[in-house]
């Protein structure tokens, strides 16, 4: 669910648009460093992947279904910088082409989903990876917890924006309780799917997983005995 136009006032939207622009500038720098000149096609295909995977329906019960938000998943798979860029582009295209998320609210939406979602997720991923032994299953567990926490964190970003410049009459406490409450539930789904998906990538192409790369040993050249 993306914020539409007129839901948060203009000054607040402006502040967050500036923050998002700054964040994108930093991510562009970071992505260039970590992905070298490969960044454009790979980040582009990551954006495409995120866009497509958000259309994959995960049935919950009784006809309801949810879908992946993908912030933490992208951060673990391609690194936080490329993930931020990919998600920002997805949000940009969704608002310009599908009217999903207001044009004037683009900064707000990018801030919540492409920054908070990705970086809170990646932060917890790093923390938990550090606490756990250096095994492949630790990556899966860390990714899963990152997914769990990234969703309510992004929702908190929305509540912050609502507290500063919300135009609705619900009290901030009510919105906080409703948003964080529902998004903890969504986060549980996100955690399960993120964990399963990262686990599956780890099983077949662990070399692609950014969050594992530091741990994997480089090609070893053994001398013949």
């Amino acid at each position: 669910m993306h914020i539409p136009d007129g839901f948060i006032d203009l000054p607040t939207s402006g502040i967050f648009a500036a923050a998002s622009a700054a964040g994108i500038a930093l991510s562009l720098k970071g992505a260039k460093k970590s992905l070298d000149e490969k960044s454009a096609p790979l980040a582009g295909l990551t954006a495409t992947f995120i866009f497509a995977v958000q259309m994959l329906n995960f049935p919950v019960a009784a006809g309801t279904s949810g879908h992946l938000l993908g912030g933490a998943l992208a951060a673990v798979l391609v690194g936080p910088y490329a993930a931020t860029l990919a998600l920002s582009v997805v949000l940009l295209m969704q608002s310009f082409l599908f009217a999903d998320g207001g044009l004037s609210a683009l900064g707000l939406n990018i801030f919540n989903m492409a920054f908070i979602g990705v970086w809170v997720g990646y932060g917890f991923f790093l923390l938990i990876r550090k606490l756990l032994p250096k095994t492949k299953s630790s990556i899966t567990i860390a990714a899963s917890i990152a997914g769990l926490l990234s969703v309510p964190a992004a929702a908190t970003g929305f509540v912050l924006q609502y507290a500063i410049g919300g135009t609705a009459t619900f009290s901030v406490q009510t919105v906080l309780a409703a948003m964080v409450g529902t998004h903890v539930l969504i986060g549980i789904g996100e955690a399960i799917i993120t964990g399963l998906a990262v686990g599956a990538v780890m099983a077949s192409r662990s070399d692609l997983v950014y969050g594992w790369r530091g741990n994997s040993s480089l090609l070893e050249i053994r001398k013949s005995i």
Binding site: T48, L196, A197
Partner: peptide, 17 residues
């Protein structure tokens, strides 16, 4: 479904390369 998503990621990434 999550495995399918993983396969989709691998295919997308390899296509990107």
């Amino acid at each position: 479904l999550a495995t399918a998503a993983a396969a989709l990621f691998i295919r997308s990434y390899e296509r990107g390369e």
